[in-house]
Design a protein around this nucleic acid. Structure first.
Ligand SMILES: [Mn+2]
Ligand SMILES: [Mn+2]
Ligand SMILES: [Zn+2]
Ligand SMILES: [Zn+2]
Lengths: 134, 134
DNA sequence: TTCCAATATTAGAATAGCTCTAAAATTCGT
DNA sequence: ACGAATTTTAGAGCTATTCTAATATTGGAA
């Protein structure tokens, strides 16, 4: 998926220079970058000044459009993810690195992620509707 | 666990009037309140002025001491939880209400929480260490 | 008991993350 | 080309939290 113009059009987002470099940066990134990291990494690539507002606007637009996911891992800023498949995340508590974990791996029961991951603990957040009183 | 003085002492936190009303408020609350909700609910109960800094200081102290848990559910402010057992959370997307879900219920495989909960989706965050490259 | 040192609390300033505002620039159909 | 609609911009504003530095409270030694 290398052509950003097509990528944006596919999601019905008008391609602009700002949007293309921002989307490109997130797609290239495996690290679930924050808005500020995106701003830092992208500002120099543009001939004109880039506003933080544009970064936030663009990221919100792309999340709305389903082109990116916004992910809240702990406290701190939102992070952005070009992996829009159903997946969860594994955070290495030593390095802070974030790994994508396919949803199937989790359904197949939690701590069987493979030898590379030692799980200290995990937290699950459900979203839905409840009939419970309180 | 009604005596806050004992509650704080058990966790090696010096009992002060501010700490007692703050801890009491969180213990009484089932709703995972934010620092600001705690501040609002507690300020009037004290004969002296209460500073927001004291609320944050106290909550951080109690989390450090293991007397409370700090929980990040979505974006927005941290929430505080007197349930220090191993548990997860269920958020009703209609009402925003937060329910405690015992960790055993989750281990016993995800969407079997009982009839009262209709799960739209859920996200799992693992914390641990990985050997994976990137 | 009165000190004193340690700790806790305070109001407000500072910082971080994000959104809003209103003006300027760009785009695009005509 | 023109004008309406959209996008971008700089900076102000807002929310959540921490920091600062001064004041108040505590609890143990003298
Ligand atoms: Mn957002
Ligand atoms: Mn905290
Ligand atoms: Zn991801
Ligand atoms: Zn809870």
């Amino acid at each position: 998926m290398e052509n950003m113009e097509k990528f944006l059009q596919k999601h019905n987002v008008k391609p602009t220079p700002q949007r293309m470099v921002i989307a490109q940066f997130v797609v290239n990134s495996k690290s679930h970058p924050t808005a500020d990291q995106i701003f830092q990494g992208v500002a120099e690539q543009l001939p004109v000044a880039l506003s933080r507002a544009t970064v936030y606007n663009t990221l919100n637009t792309l999340v709305q459009a389903g082109a990116l996911k916004e992910v809240y891992l702990e406290s701190g800023p939102a992070r952005y993810d070009a992996n829009i498949n159903d997946h969860h995340h594994f955070i290495d508590v030593k390095t802070g690195k974030v790994f994508d974990i396919d949803a199937d791996k989790v359904k197949a029961l939690a701590p069987e992620l493979g030898a590379g991951f030692k799980v200290h603990h995990y937290s699950v957040t459900f979203f839905g509707e409840s009939k419970a009183a309180d």
